[in-house]
Design a protein around this nucleic acid. Structure first.
Length: 477
RNA sequence: UCCCUAGUAGCUCAGUCGGUUAGAGCACAUGACUGUUAAUCAUGGGGUCCCUGGUUCGAGCCCAGGCUGGGGAGCCA
């Protein structure tokens, strides 16, 4: 058991009059008398009151922003205005000095770009403390939701031998000496000498493996790291991110949408219930940031209201074909405000998705039944022969947060799709076999965890919702 | 990868038409004050104006190339 109390427990049930010990880091030291102490357990700081005559000047000078200290004393009701309780110090120890001339985190507003370069220290700010506490609660909510709904947590492999997943460029995994590669007679690298005896990569999706398990355990989900070697330089992409992929036997597209919507709304209401103080802080932060932006770039609703709106309202559902019709009928289209053309068969551009979500429906939208040609080979072909049973969930500010589909369970149709997409059947023989032996209707989707954290925290850059972001040309820390 | 944009003190930023010694707030140091809320007040130290080259009597400012950050697009989650 720790020999000190966490700040969050002191606030939730203050043991007034008791002698307690707290440990943490100094946020500010005011008036040579008041320390605002943070231990990260909550966004709140505990006020530590010291009598300066009990300490010499040299000791007091060591109490700076960032210094780690331990204090023991009586917890009392505070006579001052800004806080309800405070600790009247009887004993104060400095655990770790912090040179104020060198410590880059100050008790003032820093830019997120600056803090990104100090990722090892940015946890010590209010903003990142709040973001990472919320990130934890969302991860926990995801496991809780699936556990409560009869799902089994499946650990899909991180190293994969299949290269047919078609979800983007992959990172190669090898133990071969890159400066001295073994070559075959034809001059190509002899992969049979590599660790696994074949070429291997980091996973870009656990979906195919999740399908295999779902066709026995019925309801499974994965939640793990995912890697894409795309040269994507945007505020919404990472080379390493975390993805949640539920897969459910006997679910069709409608059941899949019902699950995805219920799940998303649950996660958001869980955050509202368990992260209120952190969300309120981020909301205030967003409001003050918005004041410096032009009106049209500001958030239409404060953060908490946005989240409440999503958790309380059903999502708009419409087919791809209906969405094209909405776009063609829109004043934006008629005024030629779209840069890209709109016609049936195109892949919707960001500007089209944003129009539907932010201008037209003003709520999360589920688009279904996309043209087969612009979606993955494993999505179930509809009766019309032109579209597949796909669904994308789009949310304001982020765009696509979930992509999923009913899977093609018909052996012959799936083999035909493999041919059309030029996928070597041999490389996914195990996937095809599940369609041969007791195949059934099933469906699933993928949720980008960081995009969910972005939506809930209101953070605008995905690099600020993962502790140490990996992006092209950057794997610092 | 493409388009746009920015880089001035530890941080956030101002710097007029190309002109003498480059400024402010915060932070830091010294002192005053002592129930403060990013404490306050006074004084002080602190600069490779991103780099390289060019134009000019003279460049933080203009031009060319590069580096780094940010925004947007594509790819997607």
């Amino acid at each position: 058991m720790p020999d000190h109390s966490s700040v969050s427990t002191l606030f939730s049930a203050p043991p007034l009059g008791n002698t307690i010990t707290v440990s943490g880091w100094v946020r500010t030291f005011r008036n040579d008398q008041f320390i605002a102490l943070s231990d990260g357990s909550t966004i709140r700081t505990l006020q530590i009151v010291i009598r300066k005559e009990n300490f010499d000047d040299a000791f007091l000078k060591r109490i700076n922003t960032g210094t780690s200290i331990r204090a023991t004393g009586k917890l009392e009701k505070s006579p001052g205005k800004g806080q309800e309780i405070e600790l009247i110090t009887e004993e104060l120890n400095i655990l770790g000095d912090c040179d104020a001339n060198e410590f880059p985190i100050q008790m003032k507003r820093h830019s997120l770009e600056f803090l990104r370069e100090k990722a090892h220290l940015r946890f010590r700010t209010n903003t990142f403390g709040a973001v990472f506490r919320i990130r934890h609660h969302l991860a926990f909510a995801i496991h809780k939701y699936f556990n409560d709904h009869g799902f089994f947590y499946l650990h899909a492999p991180v190293i994969t031998g299949s290269d047919a997943e078609g979800a983007g460029e992959m990172f190669r995994v090898t133990t071969l000496d890159l400066n001295n590669l073994p070559k075959k007679e034809d001059g190509r690298v002899d992969e049979s000498l590599d660790f696994f005896g074949k070429s291997t990569h980091l996973t870009v999706s656990g979906q195919l493996e999740a399908e295999l398990a779902a066709l026995a355990l019925s309801r499974v989900y994965t939640f793990g790291p995912t890697f894409r070697a795309e040269n994507s330089n945007t505020s919404r992409h990472l080379a390493e991110f975390w993805m949640i992929e539920p897969e459910v036997a006997f679910n069709d597209l409608v059941a899949n949408m019902d699950l995805a919507e219920d799940f998303l709304r649950y996660c958001i209401s869980y955050a509202l219930m368990h992260c209120k103080e952190d969300l309120e802080f981020l909301q205030e932060r967003e409001i003050s940031e918005d004041k410096m932006k032009p009106v049209e770039e500001r958030q239409p609703l404060p953060l908490l209201q946005r989240l409440q709106f999503v958790s309380n309202n059903t999502f708009e559902r419409l087919t791809y074909s209906e969405a094209i019709r909405v776009l063609l009928d829109s004043p934006y289209y008629k005024k030629k405000k779209f840069k890209f053309p709109v016609e049936w068969g195109i892949d919707l551009q960001s500007e089209h998705e944003r129009y539907l979500v932010e201008k037209h429906f003003k709520k999360p939208v589920i688009l279904t039944n996309y043209p087969a040609a612009i979606k993955a080979f494993y999505m179930r072909l509809n009766e019309d022969g032109k579209t597949v049973a796909a669904m994308d969930i789009l949310v304001p500010g982020i765009g696509e947060i979930i992509g999923g589909s009913q899977r093609e369970e018909r052996y012959d149709v799936l083999r035909r799709k493999c041919q059309q997409f030029q996928i070597d059947e041999e490389s996914i023989w195990w996937y095809l076999e599940t369609r041969k032996f007791g195949s059934c209707v099933h469906a699933g989707f993928g949720l980008g965890f960081e995009r969910l954290v972005m939506f809930v925290t209101g953070m605008q850059n995905i690099r600020d919702v993962i502790p140490f972001p990996r992006t092209p040309q950057n794997a610092a820390f």
